[in-house]
Design a protein around this nucleic acid. Structure first.
Lengths: 157, 157
DNA sequence: CCCATATCGTTCGTGTACGCACGATGGCCA
DNA sequence: TGGCCATCGTGCGTACACGAACGATATGGG
């Protein structure tokens, strides 16, 4: 057994705070979002069906599966990723043969991305587990709370 | 002006889906948590008052301000960070002279961490802006929705 | 008392995440 | 038409995030 969080002399300060509501880091949105995101990622990793696919790689592939072909920049906007971040995600997907690219014939600045046959096969397999991942993440909530959470998150994104 | 998201021939597939509710990546918790966390971090960065302090560094310093002295591992548990992640966070705070460390006299495996005088001064300055960061992040929500969101997030962390 | 087991902190490898600067290209308007 | 400005992709630097492996230390049960 470990000692219970902290030794006697290490107890939190500010035991007697005035009427002003004290600031607790555990009650701040940013902190809770970070923790919740960590847990969601962990659940994704064990439940999606392929330990080598990350959440961002998954959402990129899902979007490419919807649109067939997209420029790297547009894909980034659709999945909410910085172009510098997108760069790395796409590079790794290409290295694994899941995504292909070709220059845009109409705009020399752009690269058009698409799923390879293997990429399509993989996404369609992972999509089967997608709902289970979300279900597991929101397991502690009632059905109504789950709807509420999604709605509230949509508003602050 | 940019073309509106996608060209004609690039419209999403599965236009006619059967009665089965289709799977939209934008409606999945994990996806929304990632986006919301991104936005929260961006707001933190511009509103906390020091562009060189990150959210994780901030929460570590706030906890050290509460407990005066903590082992690196315990601090990590209190702020929800992996020990490998904690390592880097602490190293950077020490390099900037905000945190000090000494070996635990009672346990040779542990390192005790504490804020330096400068670290204390900085945290107390940042703590003034803390509430504003949370307020700005939840600005799109009503007061009731804000309470709901915090409660729901607490349940799934 | 000694050894199996656990904890603590470090290091390595991989993967997001983003600001910034860069060169190439494209679009618009004077 | 020529030049200005935006966009696209890349590269670099910094910072979280975590699994895995490691050596040192601590602890409890036989």
């Amino acid at each position: 057994m470990r000692s219970n969080v902290a030794k006697k002399q290490q107890e939190p300060k500010s035991a007697s705070s005035p009427a002003s509501r004290q600031y607790r880091i555990e009650e701040q949105v940013g902190y809770l979002l970070r923790r919740a995101h960590q847990r969601a990622s962990a659940i994704f990793q064990v439940s999606i069906g392929d330990p080598n696919i990350t959440p961002t790689q998954y959402s990129s592939m899902v979007k490419l599966n919807e649109y067939t072909e997209l420029s790297q920049n547009l894909l980034g906007r659709l999945v909410g990723m910085d172009k510098a971040t997108m760069q790395g995600v796409v590079r790794r997907l290409k290295e694994r043969g899941l995504v292909d690219s070709r220059p845009d014939p109409g705009d020399a600045r752009r690269t058009l991305l698409s799923l390879t046959t293997e990429g399509q096969r993989l996404v369609n397999k992972l999509l089967i587990n997608g709902p289970a991942v979300s279900r597991e993440t929101m397991k502690p909530l009632t059905a109504q709370e789950q709807r509420q959470l999604l709605e509230l998150l949509s508003k602050i994104v």
